[in-house]
Amino acid sequence: MTETSATPAPFLPNQAATGRLLRPSIWRKLSRDKAAMLAAVFLVVVVALGVLAPWITPYDPYDNNLRNMLKPPSAAFWLGNDGLGRDMVSRLLFGIRTTLTMGIIAVAAGGSIGAVLGLLAAYFRRLEGPIMRVVDVLLSFPSILFGLAIAAVLGAGTFSITIALTVAAVPAIARITRAAALVVMQQEYISACRAIGMSDGRIIFRHLLPNCASTIFVYLTLQLGQTILLGAALSFIGLGAQPPTAELGTMAADGRNFLFFAPHVSTIPSFAIFLIVLAFNVLGDALRDVLDPRLRQ
């Protein structure tokens, strides 16, 4: 949830950690971590399944067929059917598509806003106080409250939940970016850029941002897992994607009504969420360990 979700262990960027993601040695180290590699491969497959869902699903995920209602897995329907007789494989693939889209859009948007705020706070010291105070306040509130408040105003639905997830992603990324950018700001090449009269915008986006990119990227990976978890929780309590939309949290909530005689309807989407979030967490942790070995306790 959750922030609904537990916040991942803090990632404190150090000088060595910034601007190194593209080095081959990093990838070599990462490739030695079997769990991380497994997580990465799993995520690639899951994303591919989500992207290709409209072309590879065996049935229409919205096609009701009450004759197949709550059937257990069989040769024709590999994961069985839900309460309206819809094919669970097709719904699962479309569910992954919706859930991942919501999570990725929210983290990309929230991450971008957060990164820009963090860069501005680090570069323009005058802005640091006001930006960071607002960020601290946002950070101090449980993410689920944003979900509740935004759903109260805009009504329940995929759109309002994506906005809530975006807002929830901003403060953590802003803070992490600022910390990384402050380290980069100490470097001589930034002073050199200033000395040759380079514009602020160019310094920020051509030099500061690329050198903080790896830190931001690692944190985005960890954030994505938490965002997906929060989005699924909000959908589960009825504030996110609305039926008949195939979304993993909504599907799990759907299956709740048949829990005692057809547990597969809620178990399959819940298990999918668990695996996806676990993969993002394992990969994020491994990336952090490789980029900042001091934290590998």
Binding site: P8, G225, L229, A232, G249, A252, T267, V277, N281
Partner: peptide, 8 residues
């Protein structure tokens, strides 16, 4: 545990 959806 951190990756587990609480509702599950």
């Amino acid at each position: 545990g951190v990756s587990m959806p609480i509702f599950w």
